[in-house]
Design a protein around this nucleic acid. Structure first.
Lengths: 151, 151
DNA sequence: GGTGAAATCTACCTAGG
DNA sequence: CCTAGGTAGATTTCACC
């Protein structure tokens, strides 16, 4: 499926999505045509799902970043989907995962400040009927951010 | 700093970094020149930190995704920086944060399979001299992935 | 806000294994 | 027959007006 050149191409595009076929060709010792063709192939086959701008949360006024672990009390399907809808709706929740084990959720949230985070916790998440308990932690520092996926 | 149009432009570019100035102009009711100019300004002022390709981890053979909470035993600066170096080095660790409270780490990891994750835990992270205890959870499902940052 | 030159992408064409 | 390299038309960007 993927050879070493594909892997390097994917790594390069993860660091900078605006690399031209010419630049990619220089890095990979390929002609611009071949570099562009590989990129097209990797897009068509679904290895590349899209291209996204990376923003600076601080500059947007989002000074506080945290993780919230949510333990559900009732695990019925209608309660879960109601909770999932809430997760979809709230813009402060930028990523959300369901975890093995106690079948709870992990939420990655960005807020303007601590009080906004507390409001989110106590007036949105905790009051939700499916939620039994939440546990939140604030991010102090981000050491690594979406490093290129290993292959 | 930012008006409503800037916010919408940032949201659009987070979903698709390859939108042209012409397309952005249509969305925002701006001329292509003005749309492109706004994008340049937001890049220059640091609101946009870069553009990244989004990959499909499954297609790359990374079937297992998890979070690892690391509690440090010794909180000395030399131990912490040694741990930070290890985090930088391991490609399976794609994101890493330091958290308030017990001053520990949260790691987001991608592995080929469960045994690779266990190897990472028991032969790389746990043996590290600064580490006292780890707690890992596997991701079952990803409901939301890097949704546009709220503003 | 618009215009034009320079650069880029994409599809097509040609050559070589 | 399939893959690599090159070329032309359309599109996009960016500096200038």
């Amino acid at each position: 499926m993927l050879d070493a050149t594909d892997t390097r191409l994917l790594a390069a595009l993860q660091k900078d999505a605006h690399l031209t076929a010419h630049q990619l060709g220089e890095m990979l010792n390929l002609s611009p045509s071949q570099a562009g063709r590989r990129r097209q192939r990797l897009e068509a086959e679904g290895y590349i799902t899209g291209y996204a701008a990376r923003l600076d949360p601080r500059k947007l006024g989002l000074q506080v970043q945290g993780f919230v672990q949510v333990h559900l009390g009732t695990h019925g399907p209608e309660q879960s989907s109601s909770f999932a809808r809430m997760v979809e709706t709230r813009p402060e929740i930028t990523s959300a995962w369901t975890m093995t084990g106690e079948a709870d959720y992990l939420l990655h949230v960005y807020c303007e400040d601590l009080s906004a985070l507390n409001t989110l916790l106590h007036e949105v998440i905790l009051p939700h009927p499916a939620v039994a308990r939440v546990q939140s932690q604030i991010v102090m520092d981000q050491l690594k951010r979406d490093a290129p996926l290993p292959t």
